[in-house]
């Protein structure tokens, strides 16, 4: 079980969190104008990198905030934990 540092609550056990997938999957800003390929990419395609991976997790049994966790998928080392970026989707 991982020990995940919540940017708001501090280190908490993994059972308090829910995994939300790749942090860099962005919903197209104008979805209706998105190409079929771009939309398909957003809905279905996920990378499965070996090594560093930016992920979103929700502190679901805690503050309910989503956070951005950088995690090594090979060693399971947690590299960084931060609030989700506020930049608008591209």
């Amino acid at each position: 079980m991982l020990l995940i540092p919540c940017p708001w609550c501090g280190p908490r056990a993994q059972i308090e969190f829910t995994y939300g997938g790749d942090a860099d999957v962005r919903r197209p800003k104008d979805a209706m104008a998105a190409t079929g390929a771009a939309w398909h990419d957003y809905v279905y395609l996920r990378d499965n990198p070996r090594g560093s991976h930016d992920e979103i997790w929700q502190h679901s049994a805690g503050c309910r905030r989503w956070l951005r966790l950088t995690r090594d998928t090979l060693t399971h080392a947690i590299i960084d934990s931060a609030p989700p970026t506020k930049e608008p989707p591209s």
Binding site: I56, W66, P84, K86
Partner: peptide, 9 residues
Amino acid sequence: EHYLQLVWP
């Protein structure tokens, strides 16, 4: 919460 915090903040 996902959409509010991450997609439409």
